[in-house]
Simulated assay, not measured.
Amino acid sequence: MTARTTAPLAEAAALAWRADPYSDALRAGRGPLFLRRSDGWLLPLEVERWCAEADAADATVLARCEGPVLDLGCGPGRLVAALARLGQPALGVDVTPEAVARTVRTGGSALCRSVFEPLPSEGRWGTVLLVDGNIGIGGDPGALLRRAAELAAPGGTLLVEAAPVDVDERVEVHVEDGNGGRGADFPWARLGIRALRAQAADAGWTRAVTWQAAGRAFVQLRR
């Protein structure tokens, strides 16, 4: 993947979560906050869960982490902070300054940068995380999965949260708070387990293992 091909993805990913409604919600630690599609479809975002400590479903992800961990789209950093408390090296990456600041305040390490920009230790991360719907970053799951493969060490692990329903879509959405505040439109994607496994195989990921916890769906892959 060249700098020319990743530049538009980096720009789209950066625009996605720099909207004021998202930053305001993270600052407050609560919603309401939504993704709205151009046809009016609305997806509630679980800000309170993201800003809380890691829960039982998150623990099933943390238990599968191997080696140093890179959390792509870390948000307010609950997983990075949980890994730090376990003594496991971890770095969060997010384009939203408030998300990075909150991650640091909770005891994690984070970098304010797009996943498509140069990142530390590329090709040496034992585990890469894409949770809380972050397979949607940039609106091109194939490109994102290939980027994750560049970041992971040989034989490394990718842990992805999929949509809990059978879906495969690329859409334009924006963030809104339900009270008139909204951000710019940006590309997003949603994949269920079946679509995610197919996209991952095309990107060079193998040995898919799936599981569910608390109504959430996950896939573990190997580089």
Rank of each mutant, 00 (worst) to 15 (best):
A110N: 03
E48K: 10
A214P: 04
D20V: 10
E150K: 02
G73W: 14
T5N: 09
A7D: 12
L91V: 14
D140Q: 11
S114K: 01
A25G: 12
L35Q: 06
A208T: 05
G192Y: 09
A28H: 08
A82L: 14
C74D: 06
R207Y: 08
D168M: 09
L145Q: 04
F34I: 04
V69F: 07
V175A: 04
P32K: 06
G87A: 05
E53K: 07
F186A: 00
P154R: 04
A63G: 10
L42T: 13
A148C: 15
L145E: 03
R27I: 02
G136F: 11
P68H: 03
W125N: 00
G123C: 01
A143E: 10
D20E: 12
A82V: 14
P97E: 01
P32I: 13
F186W: 03
A25E: 12
C51W: 01
V175P: 09
G40V: 15
R30D: 05
A10M: 13
L119D: 04
V69N: 02
F218Q: 11
P32T: 10
V95H: 07
L86Q: 09
S121T: 05
P32L: 14
R190F: 13
V95S: 01
A13H: 12
G107P: 11
A217K: 12
V165R: 13
A82W: 14
A13T: 14
A152Y: 07
L129N: 14
P8L: 01
A3I: 13
V93G: 03
W50A: 10
L111D: 08
G108V: 13
V209R: 15
Q220M: 07
C74F: 10
G31C: 09
R207S: 14
A214K: 08
A56W: 05
A57G: 08
G92V: 04
A153L: 14
L191A: 05
